[in-house]
């Protein structure tokens, strides 16, 4: 049943042209960066900064607007013999998969055409796509959770944007302030743990360290490289990202038990 809901959500999205616009954007971005950089691994680095901020933003904005726009569809489904969680999770998967599809195809095609298979940056590129997909799932989930919690749509939209702003911008600022004000103490452990509190930071560091430019990050960078560079670090941070995917879903299922439509 969840597949049917997923199918119709996906269908609805394709029809609204949003995912096509998003796909075209990534196609243009990928081709543009390759053309300007003229080098695959350098294009990956530039892409990193775009993907890591943009996929959460698009996930948040589309998540909240689409959830609200689909309210008719949701109401129609609620009167059918389908479990509530199946309906909402089906829609969540539909949107997340549609966004991931645009990302992977939109960036994948130009890089493939440029000779990705033969390049050394293939692992980094795949990691970047994987992280982009995970970030899409995380932020669509967050947006759905926020939309379910706030009946008032304008408020819901505001909170969702604030959540994105917090993770994409404010968190780093607070992190930096904390590091500066407690600079007399050993902070490596704190920094490591704090990184896990933000999926965007986690993704960024995960890829940066793979790109071997961690030397730029000084002593803390060394600690990070030692941690994230190891298979254990990789596994832990990927697990953390998956946990970040699950967190909003737990909130959604919990909210749905008492929600009135």
């Amino acid at each position: 049943m969840i597949l049917k809901v997923l199918k119709y959500s996906f269908h609805d999205l394709n029809r609204s042209r949003w995912s096509a616009v998003y796909l075209l954007f990534y196609l243009a971005l990928g081709s543009g960066l390759l053309f300007l950089n003229n080098d695959l691994s350098r294009a990956v680095v530039t892409l990193l900064n775009v993907v890591i901020v943009l996929t959460p933003l698009i996930g948040t904005v589309l998540g909240i607007t689409w959830f609200n726009n689909a309210s008719e569809f949701t109401e129609l489904l609620l009167a059918q013999p389908i479990r509530r969680t199946t309906i909402i999770l089906g829609q969540y998967l539909g949107l997340s998969l549609a966004l991931s599809f645009s990302l992977v195809v939109g960036l994948g095609l130009p890089f493939l055409a440029y000779g990705l298979i033969r390049s050394t940056a293939i692992f980094e590129f795949l990691l970047l796509l994987g992280v982009g997909v995970l970030l899409s799932f995380i932020f669509v989930g967050l947006a759905f959770a926020i939309a379910l919690t706030h009946e008032n749509r304008v408020k819901g939209f505001g909170y969702a944007i604030l959540a994105w702003l917090f993770f994409a911008v404010l968190y780093d600022g607070l992190f930096l302030i904390a590091l500066v004000s407690f600079s007399e103490y050993p902070l490596e452990r704190f920094a490591l743990i704090a990184t896990f509190g933000n999926p965007i930071d986690l993704s960024r560091i995960l890829i940066l360290l793979k790109l071997d430019i961690s030397a730029l990050m000084g002593y803390t960078g060394a600690v990070f490289a030692r941690f994230f560079g190891t298979p254990l670090g990789m596994t832990l941070s990927l697990t953390a990202l998956l946990a970040w995917c699950a967190l909003p879903l737990l909130h959604i299922t919990w909210k749905l038990r008492r929600k009135d439509f």
Binding site: S16, A70, S71, F73, E75, L76, A79
Partner: peptide, 13 residues
């Protein structure tokens, strides 16, 4: 059960 909602909301597309 069949249900007819008071205000018919349908996916406009």
């Amino acid at each position: 059960i069949s249900y007819l909602p008071q205000i018919a909301h349908f996916p406009a597309n």
